[in-house]
Design a protein around this nucleic acid. Structure first.
Length: 219
DNA sequence: ATATCGATTATCT
DNA sequence: GATAATCGATATG
């Protein structure tokens, strides 16, 4: 064997964008269905691809942990718009986090991208992160945003169904087993199980003990 | 392996 | 003026 990294043409050859109808469903459903899909960054520098292995659902105006809980503001307006668009927010003075809008226009809801498994462009991701350890490149919402060069200025409001600079594709891969656990890093509605992750995947965020938590169950 | 803590700033009250 | 959907470093068992 000459190279463990899958080639760009192997991934890009069979990938196709997702329809807007894919996102026009409940955040729970979209979160579950996004596992196994591929996040793609294409620009003059490189083509980055990584498989989605961990996400969280945020339920809109009835979810106390959601940014949309208190209604529409300048920051969160994308969540109230049509489905399939990037909502990027800045947090803790340091990090960007990527979401995709769900539901229908006028009805808030979103899914947070929490961890990816790098497929291609690993060298470029490592450069963007200033690291080389594969499991630290995209395991965490702030980390994956840094690896993909995602910022609010560049990507907030971007249509993720269009195969352009940043989009989500299906390459035919199907996830076997999904685990469901409480969401991470929140204080309100902290007991709801709205975190979806691929069972056994090495790139999920947090400690291994947490991803095997008792509160997890298989779907 | 798990716990705690500081960094740093856009956004909202 | 307080908060936050995080990360990385350090401390302790």
């Amino acid at each position: 064997m000459r190279d463990l990294e899958i080639t760009r043409s192997e991934v890009m050859g069979k990938i196709r964008p997702l329809d807007r109808s894919f996102f026009a469903r409940s955040p729970r459903r979209v979160a579950r269905e996004l596992l196994g899909k591929v996040l793609v960054r294409q620009d003059a520098q490189a083509t980055l691809t990584a498989r989605i292995v961990e996400v969280e659902a945020y339920l809109g105006e009835k979810d106390p942990a959601a940014h949309s809980f208190a209604g529409m503001t300048a920051r969160n307006s994308v969540l109230f718009g049509p489905p399939g668009y990037a909502y990027v927010y800045f947090i803790y003075g340091n990090h960007y986090c990527l979401n995709v809008s769900c539901e229908t226009e006028g009805r808030a809801g979103g899914v947070l991208f929490r961890a990816l498994e790098p497929l291609t462009g690993i060298k470029e991701m490592a450069r963007a992160r200033g690291l080389s350890a594969p499991h630290l490149l995209t395991s965490g919402p702030g980390r994956l945003s840094e690896a993909f060069g995602i910022t609010r200025a560049r990507d907030n409001g971007r249509d993720l169904t269009l195969p352009g600079e940043l989009w989500i594709g299906d390459d035919g891969f199907r996830v076997r087993t999904v685990l469901l656990t409480p969401r991470i890093g929140i204080t309100k509605a902290a007991d709801l199980r709205l975190r979806y992750l691929v069972a056994g995947n090495q790139f999920v965020s947090g400690s291994k003990t947490f991803s095997r938590a008792k509160s997890a169950f298989r779907v």
